[in-house]
């Protein structure tokens, strides 16, 4: 009959109207400034610099100012100035560090090439999109203090990626340590070899001697 479709339509809208009050699956709006949606892990916008330690971000930057990202950056939004001196990195090795590290996010095109070329996992993509400013020249020019964010933050926004990076870095450090240990052992063995001591005696004496032999080589671990 004429009009039955109209009544059905009215029924549908009434159902949606009532449903929006008690069915959270219907009313999917999140009221943005107060409530924030969890961004998908793959979301990225602009780069940030990873530091190992939240309490001392400038001292524990992974970046060694190698300037690969600066050279690779297609829109050339990165500006790096190497430091004159070296200071120990997280593993204790003496490294250069960036005296100046600026990213002009008004130029950045979020291509992630800097992240892909970085051999030190020092630069990663951020998810912070609330960077609107009233001043487009200085407000969007982020220096290293604004860019440095701790590794824990990286874990927060890209958990999978961060776990993979941490695992790899730990494995690399372990391998480096073992290599150093092996090298020290070989050196010790080399030093011990000219002595015409019995082999069995040398074998038992070597293990306690090895740490003391390599101790002066490595700087005191913090």
């Amino acid at each position: 009959m004429l009009g039955s479709g109209l009544l059905q339509g009215l029924g549908v809208t009434a159902k949606n109207f009532v449903g929006s009050f008690h069915d959270p699956a219907r009313l999917t709006t999140t009221e943005y400034p107060e409530v924030k949606t969890k961004l998908p892990e793959a979301y990225r916008n602009f780069p940030f610099l990873v530091s190992e330690n939240a309490t001392d971000p400038m001292g524990t930057l992974r970046c060694v100012a190698c300037q690969i990202c600066e050279k690779e950056c297609p829109p050339q939004c990165i500006f790096i100035e190497k430091s004159k001196d070296k200071k120990p990195d997280a593993t204790g090795k003496l490294q250069l560090f960036p005296a100046v590290f600026d990213i002009d996010v008004s130029v950045c095109m979020s291509c992630q090439i800097c992240v892909e070329v970085c051999p030190f996992d020092a630069i990663k993509m951020d998810q912070d999109f609330e960077i609107a400013t009233t001043d487009r020249f200085t407000g969007l020019m982020l220096d290293k203090h604004a860019l440095a964010k701790p590794n824990s933050y990286f874990h927060e926004i890209h958990p999978t990626d961060a776990a993979e990076v941490d695992g790899r870095l730990a494995a690399e450090r372990k391998a480096a340590e073992e290599k150093a240990k092996a090298a020290a052992a070989a050196k010790a063995a080399l030093a011990a070899a000219p002595k015409p001591a019995p082999a069995a005696l040398a074998a038992t004496a070597k293990p306690p001697a090895a740490p003391s032999a390599e101790a002066p080589k490595t700087p005191p671990a913090a």
Binding site: N16, S20, T29, E31
Partner: peptide, 10 residues
């Protein structure tokens, strides 16, 4: 407000 609610927004 009613149009919004019918369209499932506040």
């Amino acid at each position: 407000k009613i149009l919004g609610r019918v369209q499932n927004r506040p």
